[in-house]
Every structure is written in C-alpha cells, then in structure tokens.
C-alpha cells in the first residue's frame, strides 16, 4: 500500500479547476492515504481563508480534510529533517559566489514526508521536480536565466540525492489522466461534443496547465496520445 503526499501546488491546480470532487472519487479507489503536511495546510487552507478570491476553494479543501479524504500528517520529528534538507537544497547551486535559495519549507516538508513514508509525491511545482529528477537541467535553467556560470556543490548534491533515495513524482495532470481512465469523467461525454473523450481530456489537462501545473504542451499531447483518444 503506497500513500500519496500532496504539495500545495498540486492541490491548488485541482481546486482552481473544480476538480476536488474527482479527488474524492479517486480516494474511494485508492488503498493508501492522501497526506498533507502542516506547512502545506497553511498554504492551501489558512492563507486563502483570509483572502476573498480563493476562499471558497479553501473551504472545499477544508471539507476534504473534515471527511478524511486528505489526512493531515503531524510529526514533530520531521521538522529537524526538513530544515536540514531545506538547507542542503538551498546550498547546491552557487551563482557569483552566492548560494541560490530555490525552495521553501512547505515544499521540502512534503518531500520529506514522501521519503519517510515511502509515498509518491504529487507536485505541480517545477523547481523541486527538477531538483529531484534532474538537477543538471535545473542548473542549466539557472545558468541561462541568471546569465552566469552556476557551480554545483557536489558534496551537497550527493547528500541531497542520498536523502531523497528514489522518491517518485507525479503531477495533478497524471492523477487526473488516471481518473479519466477510470471513467470518472464519463458524465461529461455529451452529444454536444464532437469527440467527447478527447475534448474532455484535453480540457482537463489544459485547465490544469493554465492554472499552474508545470506541464508542457508536448507532455499534454503525449498523455492524450497515450490515452488513445
């Protein structure tokens, strides 16, 4: 049984696309737990509850927590490990003699929870995915954007790699693609659509992308091709 740990970015994309009910339906087909950390809760619930624009999305998330669809994971021992890993992450890439601070605590805390609970990490945010899966590409991106040589602190990178082991990452896009495969969007296959299945999947993936999921056009059409619609 594998759990799924959510970063704020994936939940934000799902919430702003009105896809939280699909998360609830997915949970009924899932043997593990959907977990969030305390820092992620602050970002997806506490902060927007005090704003007007995303208040209702936050209320919907609070309902998922209330129903135990999303489970808040609290463990004081995790804080020390998260802070150590955050410090490592933020001291890997050096530009003009300065370490580039690339991540924040909530992102790393969710990563630590994924590692310690052997869970899959759901994150739409680009930087942490790049750091975990291909730090060289992140270095190339930083080098291009900063227009300066980036030096990688190999010792810190090795320590980071050894901490994260082989953690696996998915995005809200893949999660919803699976929901699509499982027939959770069947109700939308109306006579008004020329090619309902393709249009629905395209609509879901573009909606997620346009509200923050870091997925490229090429990847969107790869998913559509893989789904054979």
């Amino acid at each position: 049984m594998t759990d799924l740990v959510f970063d704020s970015s994936a939940l934000i994309s799902l919430a702003t696309n009105s896809l939280l009910p699909k998360l609830e339906e997915l949970k009924s087909k899932f043997n593990g737990k959907f977990l969030i950390t305390e820092s992620v809760k602050k970002e997806i619930l506490d902060h927007p509850l005090h704003s007007n624009k995303f208040k209702f999305e936050a209320i919907m998330i609070s309902n998922l927590l209330q129903q135990n669809i999303l489970k808040l994971f609290t463990n004081l021992n995790m804080e020390k490990k998260s802070m150590r890993l955050l410090d490592l992450c933020n001291n890997i890439f050096i530009a003009r003699g300065n370490p580039v601070k690339i991540l924040d605590r909530a992102e790393v805390e969710a990563l630590v929870l994924s590692i310690t609970s052997n869970a899959v990490y759901a994150v739409d945010e680009r930087t942490i995915r790049l750091l975990v899966e291909d730090p060289r590409k992140l270095s190339q991106l930083l080098e291009r954007k900063f227009d300066t040589k980036i030096i990688i602190d190999q010792k810190n990178l090795a320590a980071f790699k050894s901490e994260i082991k082989d953690v696996q990452i998915i995005r809200s896009a893949e999660l919803m693609a699976v929901a699509f495969e499982l027939g959770l969007f069947k109700e939308y296959e109306t006579k008004y659509l020329e090619n309902p299945r393709r249009e629905i999947l395209e609509g879901i993936l573009w909606g997620l992308r346009l509200r923050g999921c870091a997925i490229s056009t090429e990847e969107i059409y790869d998913i559509i091709k893989l789904e054979g619609v």
């Binding site: 702003t16 704003s51 690339i102 991540l103 992102e107 930087t127 930083l142």
Partner: peptide, 21 residues
C-alpha cells in the same frame, strides 16, 4: 528564474494561489 513557487511567494509576501494562477 528557477526559484520555486513557495519560495517566490514567501519572498514577495504574496499568496501562492495568485501566483499559480
């Protein structure tokens, strides 16, 4: 420039929801 969403929101004191949008 490669700074994460969370770190950017923290630096500017803004909401990650607005930034994602």
């Amino acid at each position: 420039h490669g700074i994460s969403l969370g770190r950017t929101a923290e630096l500017l004191g803004i909401n990650q929801w607005e930034l994602s949008d």
